[in-house]
Amino acid sequence: MSHPLRGTFVGNSIVRLADEGVPIGALSRTFKIPYDSAHGIVRQALEDGVIVDMPQADWPAGSRLRKPTTAPIRLEERPDFLASCKAAFGLTPAESRLLQCLLRARACTRPHLHAVVAPEAEPKIVDVFVCKIRGKLRKYQVRIDTIWGQGYAMGEESRRLVLALIGERS
């Protein structure tokens, strides 16, 4: 049985954020709904195949989120890197540049990624690129994590996987 909030703005937002790894407790507090309701929405999305994994119940006690870089990101032009990303993952040049930023800095703010990847476009394009990259890298178990309200990060394991798949060294 579908949850009453599924298909609403709140329900769709909860599913999208759960897919990005935001814990259920954080979703419950953010949208001011009972934990059981948030859990039901996410569980139904998992059963429907909309999301792949159930997120954590809540942030670990005492956890600190990674802080994204605030230093300007400068990328060297690397046609070989762009070609490797296209061959390995089917990434566009802009998606490859965003991935290159995350490989280099590991955690980046949206404004910094926007300045490097597509300064002529609307800032929301960064979120669109991340969504597309996640879809293309999901089958390789590569994760791009959301740093809530700030930007994106790539963990060491995902970084190693990407570099190995495109034949680069750390």
Score class of each variant (00 low, 15 high):
Gly167Arg: 11
Arg16Ala: 14
Ile73Phe: 04
Glu95Asn: 07
Arg143Cys: 01
Pro119Cys: 06
Ile133Gln: 01
Ser84Gly: 14
Pro72Leu: 11
Leu103Cys: 13
Val42Arg: 02
Arg169Pro: 04
Ala121Leu: 13
Arg66His: 09
Ile24Lys: 09
His114Tyr: 07
Met1Lys: 13
Gln141Val: 07
Pro23Asn: 11
Leu113Trp: 02
Leu137His: 03
Gln44Cys: 13
Glu120His: 15
Arg64Val: 10
Gly62Ser: 06
Ile166Lys: 05
Gln44Glu: 15
Leu99Asn: 02
Val52Gly: 00
Trp148Ala: 07
Val116Ile: 10
Val22Ile: 15
Gln100Tyr: 03
Thr70Val: 12
Glu157Thr: 10
Ala118Glu: 10
Ala26Pro: 00
Lys32Ala: 14
Leu161Ala: 15
Asn12His: 12
Ser37Gly: 07
Ile144Glu: 01
Gly7Leu: 09
Lys86Phe: 11
Leu46Thr: 03
Arg6Phe: 07
Gly151Glu: 05
Arg16Gln: 12
Lys136His: 04
Phe89Val: 01
Ile166Met: 07
Ala94Gly: 04
Gln150Glu: 13
Asp36Tyr: 15
Ala105Phe: 06
Gly21Trp: 02
Gly25Met: 02
His3Thr: 12
Leu5Tyr: 13
Ala107Leu: 08
Ala57Gly: 05
Met154Leu: 15
Leu161Pro: 05
Ile41Leu: 03
Arg16Ser: 13
Val42Asp: 07
Ile133Lys: 00
